[in-house]
């Protein structure tokens, strides 16, 4: 019934606007304003089309030189003690460009300003960032006796949930475990087909239903199949969903409850985040944490140019640890998250 409040709110606004407009005198002549020229950011001319063998290498080298430059300078700062505004500016640039975000960046800068850089800027910065990444990253695979362990995969559209399931299935199967995949994305076209192909590729079992079916019942069936066959783990896919819809999040919470009911037990709920995502990742994490009790993050697409620094802010603010990272599209392209290496890549980029 919140609708009522909303509708009234809407009509108050619209009514107000219309009343005001109706009463409005003819618009005053615009004040004489000196306009700025078109911003220089704009590149209005077409870039000449390069020949094909000029294409990628140039931009790759470009990218490296651009970002290397800044950090080279950070590293060059070895003097202990008080940092200059320019040095702090360099740090700010490195962090912001990695998507660490304004709040976390400011906190780091504040600390640097107060404490100085005792062991040189690069080391101090590393230490500071690592201090945000202190949570335990154990990935739990054991359910209570008599129940089947379930890993539930959640996240917004297109981040790499299904692919990550494929990769993890491969990992479990090659460790000799038996895996059942639950095609809980019954919404997106051909989502179950996609998961089925991963099942075939990795030698796992898959339970699916038709498009539009209830995701809860797919998960339920998968649990039944898994416990009947004595499988070790169920990896449950879910439809990608935006994080600002209570309906969609409620639906997810429901799927999670089903997965957590005997014979199943959810031992990990993994939020899949795309490394290219900026500040919105924080609100994604917050919403999915509230709706589905997320226990860890899989950070995908780290093989690209994006740094994924936002996970630092997420762990700082919400305490959700990254457990795995995706580094490609193949079955092997998933590795355990290593904070040291990650921080190094943020800074070294």
């Amino acid at each position: 019934m919140i609708v009522l409040v909303l509708v009234l709110g809407a009509l108050v606004l619209v009514g107000a606007v219309i009343i005001v407009r109706a009463r409005r005198r003819p618009r005053r002549p615009a004040p004489a304003v000196a306009r700025a020229p078109m911003p220089e950011v704009l590149v209005t001319q077409a870039t000449p089309r390069p020949t094909i063998d000029q294409v990628a290498p140039t931009s790759f080298a470009d990218r490296l030189s651009t970002s290397r430059g800044v950090f080279e300078r950070v590293r060059a700062v070895t003097s202990a003690g008080v940092l200059s505004a320019e040095q702090l500016g360099l740090v700010e640039e490195v962090l912001l460009r990695s998507d660490v975000g304004v709040a976390t960046t400011n906190e780091v800068l504040e600390q640097l300003k107060n404490d100085g850089a005792v062991d040189g800027l690069a080391l101090t910065l590393r230490r500071l960032l690592l201090s945000y990444l202190g949570s335990s990253r154990t990935a739990h695979t054991q359910a209570e006796a008599g129940r089947v362990a379930v890993w539930l995969f959640v996240g917004v559209n297109g981040v790499g949930k299904t692919t990550s399931i494929g990769k993890l299935a491969h990992r479990f199967v090659s460790e000799g475990q038996s895996v059942v995949l639950a095609a809980g994305d019954t919404f997106r076209a051909a989502a179950a087909d996609q998961l089925e192909q991963w099942a075939i590729k990795t030698g796992s079992d898959v339970v699916r239903s038709s498009e539009g079916a209830d995701p809860g019942s797919v998960v339920h069936d998968a649990l039944g199949r898994a416990s009947a066959r004595g499988a070790d783990i169920v990896l449950a896919d879910t439809a990608g969903r935006r994080a600002n819809s209570t309906n969609l999040l409620d639906e997810l919470a429901k799927v999670r409850r089903v997965a957590d009911r005997a014979p199943g037990q959810v031992v990990e709920t993994l939020l899949v985040l795309d490394a290219t995502t900026g500040q919105n990742a924080v609100s994604q994490a917050r919403e999915f944490l509230a709706a589905a009790s997320v226990t860890g993050i899989i950070l995908t697409k780290l093989d690209g140019t994006a740094r994924g620094g936002i996970v630092v802010a997420i762990e700082r603010e919400l305490g959700i640890p990254v457990k795995f990272v995706g580094v490609g599209e193949g079955v092997e392209d998933l590795v355990a998250f290593d904070p040291e290496a990650f921080v190094a890549s943020l800074l070294d980029a």
Binding site: T58, S59, R63, S98, T276, T277, G304, T305, A306
Partner: peptide, 17 residues
């Protein structure tokens, strides 16, 4: 994607080139 962060620039430039 509207949620893209700082990387948008590197990506767009390369695709444009």
């Amino acid at each position: 994607d509207s949620v893209t962060g700082q990387d948008a620039v590197a990506t767009a430039r390369t695709f444009h080139e």
